[in-house]
């Protein structure tokens, strides 16, 4: 066990947001069609290499989205799902909302990367609503993304500000999707979720035993082929 866990640790300290974004970017297969959610997942675009030939989708109706617009590039008719002005790359295309969500729901997107409040051991996702009685609910495309993409990656800190694990046995926040998350990238480890439970691909600044002490679901080391 100690040999195995030692081999899982790939960094001697927890990963920062940018290092984590760089890792997610590296894990996206060349030629993929990808949707990056609002917030932390947007950082991933900073680390995609041109030779990866990744096409970014934005659910408000575009494939081939380029970087955030600056200065003279800003055009109110060209925004991303976070309503931030963006640019178009050569080969971009525009389409209406029903087509955009058909792209998603129809299984044509390879990966979406989302933030989360909680992920369950079986890959249930909670990321749209705290469930607080006075909160105004707003779902946007979160449920469509969670359900539609072939792979759903989550990026989040492992622990809440209060130190509670966001990987949980069962989500206590309202669900976004059932059994949809395939990988969870956190500051302390990368987790693979699915019907076989939670596997750990690599850890950052902790051993598997130390990680297990933080997470209330059984963790196993992922097979070497997944690393």
């Amino acid at each position: 066990m100690s040999i195995q866990t030692a081999s899982l640790q790939t960094s001697d300290k927890p990963l920062g947001r940018d290092d984590l974004a760089r890792l997610v970017a590296r894990d996206i297969k060349p030629g993929s069609f990808v949707n990056l959610g609002i917030g932390q997942p947007t950082l991933v675009s900073n680390y995609l290499e041109p030779e990866q030939n990744i096409t970014l989708h934005t659910e408000n109706g575009m494939l081939g989205m380029g970087p955030v617009a600056e200065g003279d590039q800003i055009d109110g008719d060209l925004i991303n799902a976070g309503k931030i002005p963006v640019t178009e790359l050569p080969g971009a295309s525009y389409f209406h909302h029903a087509d955009s969500f058909a792209i998603m729901r129809g299984g044509h997107l390879d990966i979406c990367v989302l933030g989360a409040f909680q992920v369950s051991a079986t890959g249930d996702l909670a990321n749209w609503h705290t469930g607080a009685p006075d909160a105004i609910p707003a779902v946007g495309g979160a449920m469509d993304l969670a359900t539609g993409a072939k792979d759903v990656f989550v990026m989040m800190t492992l622990l809440t500000r209060d130190g509670a694990s966001k990987i949980v046995d069962a989500c206590t926040y309202p669900l976004t999707g059932v059994g949809c998350v395939t990988r969870v990238y956190t500051d302390k480890a990368v987790f693979l979720t699915g019907p076989d439970g939670v596997q750990v691909r690599e850890t950052f600044g902790c051993t598997l035993e130390e990680l297990q002490a933080l997470v209330p679901v059984p963790l196993t080391a992922a097979p070497a082929v997944e690393r």
């Binding site: 659910e59 209406h96 909302h97 029903a98 955009s100 969500f101 058909a102 998603m104 729901r105 105004i136 609910p137 707003a138 779902v139 946007g140 495309g141 979160a142 449920m143 469509d144 539609g148």
Partner: peptide
């Protein structure tokens, strides 16, 4: 009154 609909369901219901 608010009827909250996931965005893709909103689009497809309109379609």
């Amino acid at each position: 009154e608010l009827e909250l609909v996931p965005q893709g369901n909103l689009a497809e219901r309109i379609r």
